[in-house]
Design a protein around this nucleic acid. Structure first.
Lengths: 217, 217
DNA sequence: GTGTTACTTATACGACTGTAAAACAAAACG
DNA sequence: CGTTTTGTTTTACAGTCGTATAAGTAACAC
């Protein structure tokens, strides 16, 4: 019990925004490491290095925290997607190429993202506000894709149903992303990207099979 | 306390298979109605009309029961899909049409299926056997699609990568199904089917946009 | 140095969790 | 009818859950 040791503070305070973000990141890590079931209030707070009671000072409860984690990640995704999808400096086709790479590459195909998504889907049914949250994010994403497709269709004088085309591409991306997360050995990210390119070939009136034939695993 | 009432038995016995299936169906209903979190052992057994202890006489535990429910549904799906996807009496194209209808229609787009799927995905990370289960089912489904596409490619002399094409179509179906479950007002089942038809148009070398333009909501 | 603020911890509570094991009762067999 | 078998219930337990509340203490103002 030397007095020198007593000078170390038992905890240090953080600003509200910092603490909130720390708890959100801890939640994401816990969901990735333990899954939705074992991610308890105590586990999250231990991961964040704080005591269990603190969670309720910054969030309505555990479910709210999970929802905020989902919101945090979707916002980040949509921001980044928007930043290079609406970048007029590049041709639309290579902007979409960047999108494919971003969604089907390790950064986004991860236990962290899948964990939060599955946990959110579990909660979505119970709470109508969460359904709205998902709807808003999802349509935002779809509309971003729609805008690029519209540019593309306009400059090449393609007559189509932009809304359905956007739904098609976003669903294809979602499906590829999910299958890649659930079974990483089913196909490679490169093959997923080749599939997306092929979709784009069809949209632009090119042969759908040209790019598929010599896609590397 | 009339003696006549005492003649009613307090419970009736079932054969092992029947009781197992009753518990599986109860699990599916609970997951649909309450979500994965609130679906407890007691809730499942109450739904099945039996006492809580009975679950452990037929299953290793709650998680095992959920996995069996997933297995039950995936087997049913793949059986039905196989029955009309490999039906040589019909042309390949209309067999695929049936597939689109089956996957994107109310029977398969339901809280019951989504509930079991999300619950299973939550468990998948923890248990490697469950990952294998998912892989087997998923590749079975993909291979079935691949066989039809192969027939189609052969008879029309289309040179392509069948494996990637099958991954593409199955991912598109998965994505459309999931988005339809999570946000039923985002687009209609008819629009989803139109999107799948358009994919098939591309595969067959036809114009991708023809069918999209006048798809009804 | 003292007082105030509010962020953080510590502790506790009631409810619910999944599971184990013993008691029971219905059906099958003798 | 008596006995055995076994599907089913009942009860109990140890553990964990999310949350509420009070005590504590670091940081800031003065």
């Amino acid at each position: 019990m030397a007095e020198a040791e007593k000078t170390q503070p038992k905890f240090h305070r953080l600003e509200a925004d910092e603490r909130r973000e720390a708890l959100i990141n801890a939640t994401i890590r816990c969901l990735a490491r333990l899954g939705p079931r074992a991610t308890s209030v105590r586990e999250i707070c231990a991961e964040a290095g704080v005591s269990p009671g603190l969670l309720r000072h910054y969030f309505e409860g555990k479910d709210d925290l999970v929802a905020q984690a989902y919101l945090h990640l979707t916002s980040k995704l949509n921001e980044r997607v928007e930043s290079f999808l609406l970048d007029q400096a590049q041709p639309p086709e290579s902007r979409l190429e960047q999108l494919f790479l971003h969604i089907l590459t390790e950064e986004w195909v991860s236990d962290e993202i899948l964990g939060v998504w599955v946990a959110f889907w579990s909660l979505q049914r119970s709470d109508e506000r969460l359904s709205n949250l998902h709807r808003v994010y999802n349509r935002e994403f779809r509309d971003l894709i729609g805008k690029v497709l519209e540019e593309l269709a306009a400059e090449r004088e393609i007559k189509t149903n932009i809304r359905l085309a956007a739904i098609s591409l976003s669903s294809l991306l979602d499906g590829l992303w999910l299958e890649l997360c659930l079974d990483p050995d089913g196909f490679s990210a490169q093959e997923g990207i080749a599939i997306c390119r092929s979709w784009l070939d069809g949209f632009l009136g090119r042969d759908v099979h040209d790019g598929m034939r010599n896609a590397k695993a």
